[in-house]
Amino acid sequence: MTVTEKDIRHVAKLAKLEIPDDEIKKFTEQMDKIIEMVEQLSELDTENVPVMTHGMETYSVMREDKAIPGTDREKLFENVKTEKDGLIKVPAIMDNSEGDA
């Protein structure tokens, strides 16, 4: 066993996901097998091998420093569920007993 239910709960918290109690056992087992499978990479000697983190050779992409119109603000709000005074309304960020969503 590489990972425990405790590890899975910790990672779920980082990923902002909740694994229900009745699924945690199966989920941990599946994740354990997946992690065991990907960890076969440890047998590979990669000393002095550079990392490849992009799909092709990268370089800084520059463009002319000129203002161009972005997407219309009203349009961007078309998919927003709750709006107030031109802002997105969300539940309380901190609990100050004033939040309403």
Partner: peptide
């Protein structure tokens, strides 16, 4: 927050994200 599915009956922003 900005688009897509949004969970109902949540009390805090953190709960909104997770749910």
């Amino acid at each position: 927050v900005r688009y897509g599915y949004r969970a109902k009956d949540v009390e805090s922003l953190e709960e909104l994200y997770v749910k």
